[in-house]
Design a protein around this nucleic acid. Structure first.
Lengths: 214, 214
DNA sequence: TAGATTGTTAATCGATTAACAATC
DNA sequence: TAGATTGTTAATCGATTAACAATC
């Protein structure tokens, strides 16, 4: 249908989409048809010009005096995050972090559904986590292929990260969301996104060290 | 002692410190006294010039032909992250995520020690998590003050985030590490660092949506 | 019309990369 | 000396902010 879909939406803009979505959803719920960049900016403590640029980069044009069409923005953002066809994911590692992510309901809002959780530890296999039975890694590849699962969420201990990531790639996973502190080297065809807790902690620690000194 | 400590180390540089530290620690363990920017860069797939700039911004000068002093870099990085006096933290929220963070041993490497975990849910209070007894929020303020705890790690459900953050501020906490999707508005004197899972997921999802289409 | 709001173009800012000089 | 390596200065790139024109 539409051509030149996601020409050039910067990652900076994409990272702000989850900020925008709840605000704009709320406007929709309140029955507002249009919303202005100033209104959005105010609620999020952002610069209105930035909001306009972000929306423009999604390929949406507004109306002077009226603002932007609420449902148009929403639909566009959902499309960019691939929410048309909900993304399914398997969690690898049924420890606390894996369980936390499986239990957390908030990802559904952005189109991610966790539909399986795996572990190698026989003590964990068979237990229930977030309504899912923990399965052995033996079954991972078969199920990825049968269920066409695109995403693996990696929450294993650092020592097991490389092996598990390779297993995921081998199984045909298209994207790995890496919560381990390990830097993975996957083939470029596999999407890799890392949650870097250590980097975040480093920023916090350095700020704290500098105020505690004074 | 030394003057002009952390003149102007950019957050980009600080976020890379946790990347550098293990590599340089390893060099130290292997008995190397000096290490070159090229060596570090190679191991981390970074540009050697970037490594040199980062190290220079820490206030360290190297020796042409020899590289940089391993122990000097290490000591400087540890100082920046405030590892001289280990930072203690209380976790608020003894759910899966809070438990995962309390159980995760890796933060010690960057000077963070979790020494308490709190919850309001009577069902959780008294249970053991990572060798700590889950305490009621009633005791939070008193213990923060008695133990001089600078950091609160917020892992409660979104609905409780604002209230809990305010309680932490009220108790005298100096820094909040926010794992909830809630945007907090704290007084500027309180350090706030957020781990933005939704932003990371948005990037992953958008990359995936774009490859799945083709 | 007047004024609120979008949209565009230029300026600024910070981080990274490139080119090359300095040094041990 | 020669060559590996640091250090400095300039160029590039991308994101944000500022200024202002266009429009409904």
């Amino acid at each position: 249908m539409e051509t030149f879909e996601l020409e050039s939406i910067s990652y900076s803009t994409i990272r702000r989409i989850p900020l925008y979505m709840p605000v704009i959803r709320q406007a929709a719920t309140e029955g507002q048809k249009m919303v202005s960049s100033a209104k959005i900016a105010e609620m999020l403590h952002l610069d209105p010009v930035l909001v306009r640029k972000d929306i423009a980069s999604l390929g949406i044009t507004g109306q002077a005096r009226n603002g932007f069409d609420v449902l148009e923005i929403l639909g566009r953002m959902e499309k960019i995050l691939g929410m048309a066809n909900t993304n399914t994911a398997f969690v690898i590692g049924a420890g606390n972090l894996g369980s936390a992510l499986a239990n957390y309901g908030g990802f559904a809002e952005y189109g991610l559904q966790i539909v399986g959780i795996f572990d190698t530890n026989p003590g964990k296999i068979g237990k229930e986590v977030a309504g899912l039975t923990v399965l052995p890694m033996d079954k991972f590849e078969h199920l990825v292929q049968r269920m066409h699962i695109p995403i693996a969420i990696l929450t294993v201990p650092a020592a097991a990260a490389k092996t598990c990531a390779d297993m995921a790639v081998q199984a045909g996973i298209r994207a790995v969301w890496n919560f381990t502190p390990t830097k993975l080297n996957l083939p470029p065809s596999v999407i890799l996104e890392r949650v870097d807790l250590a980097a975040s902690l480093a920023v916090l620690s350095s700020k704290l060290a500098s105020v505690l000194k004074s």
